[in-house]
Design a protein around this nucleic acid. Structure first.
Lengths: 212, 212
DNA sequence: CCAACAATCTAATCATTGATTAGTTGATAA
DNA sequence: TTATCAACTAATCAATGATTAGATTGTTGG
């Protein structure tokens, strides 16, 4: 781990910003962003308490940078999930599942990525853009899959589906879903079945009537 | 506001715990729970900085108490939303909408009620119970509406619906839904339409096939 | 090659906050 | 009246976010 002999650490470091982000990322993964302290972070990296403030305006900007990296990784996962050879309907399902999988693999990071404190007081434009990107990805596939739907109807389907995806991921990370899985199915199976149901509902023809 | 003449405040107060909760509630409603400080709260109520610690073990317990009050109010709203004369299907929709309405009326409070930091390190039993109550309420109505569904199928429907409800409320409070409402519909209309769609999907007969 | 400059970092410091402790006040009951 | 005890104050500590002044180092124009 330590490339330096502990003595003779250079005054100017290679890339402190990156080192801080790496350490912060590790802390978020392990304990969440709530307890993350700028000072202990500086100490962990081996630097004075004030040093991080030359790379981040304040603690919020540090967290924001971590969140943005998370969105980048989430976006890559979304790209990997879709394929040009698959049908839009299949892509839609895989897109949803990629979000769920990311949430399960990085629960604390996702929590930070949607933390309301990040956007206050000023909602960062880049953050907002990434937060809306997830919905836009679904929107594109839904339009491709059901081009004949009216604008209004499609918006409704999209809203419902995106809510389901985000809600499922959130509830799962809060351990509000696992307590009732007596069905013997694996968590992945349950996620897949649930999301398939939601995607089918989103793709269903609007002429279907509700059974009494 | 001030029943006391500002001078001669009694050493022992009527019910400091209640006063603290009221002030804290007001702060949460206005600014969220993140910036809530025990000391400024004590100052606002007119008491020494250490006084609150005779009524709450620490800051987390104070927030927990506020959250529990929130759940009580949410539960009352849910009871008001359902009626014995209405059909289970109607009750199911109204139950979902009552959650959405509560979320819109008390966005900061709902955020606190599902704040992950509340459950760490020890997940409070009462809190967990209330968090699961929302799902249980839906479960009861769904069982009444579709008693013939298999246990597995019903669990799936419930999971999907509850995810949609919670997800919609969360995304809405994060202002991640309003940016695309060009349809001219009111927020209430959109919520109602979206949730109706989700409820219909949950109640649909499982024999329905997915159109290609 | 060197002198000015700018960026990076340290050390010191301040204000705020959560939390604890010792002692004070006052209500209640024996 | 007095013993008791919960509620409260005052004082204090440790941790943290953030700022400032100054030391150090890399860079660049002359």
């Amino acid at each position: 781990m330590a490339a330096e002999p502990a003595e003779r650490r250079p005054y100017h470091r290679e890339d402190l910003r990156r080192d801080l982000l790496l350490a912060a990322h590790a802390h978020v993964r392990a304990h969440g962003h709530h307890g993350l302290s700028v000072r202990t972070l500086a100490q962990a990296v081996g630097v004075s308490p004030g040093a991080p403030y030359h790379h981040f305006r304040d603690r919020r900007e540090l967290l924001l940078a971590i969140a943005l990296e998370g969105y980048a990784r989430l976006g890559e996962a979304a790209v990997r999930a879709t394929s040009d050879t698959a049908s839009p309907a299949e892509n839609l399902l895989e897109l949803c599942l990629s979000f769920i999988a990311f949430a399960q693999a990085n629960p604390r990071l996702l929590e930070l990525m949607y933390e309301s404190e990040l956007t206050s007081p000023a909602p960062d434009p880049a953050l907002l853009h990434h937060q809306q990107a997830g919905r836009h990805a679904l929107q594109a596939q839904l339009e491709a899959a059901r081009p004949t739907l009216s604008e209004q109807e499609r918006t409704l389907r999209l809203l419902s589906l995106w809510s389901t995806v985000y809600g499922f991921a959130s509830l799962r990370n809060k351990h509000l879903i696992d307590p009732f899985e007596p069905s013997g199915s694996s968590p992945d199976q349950i996620a897949r079945s649930t999301l398939r149901l939601a995607v089918e509902a989103a793709l269903r023809q609007p002429t279907d009537a509700l059974a009494p």
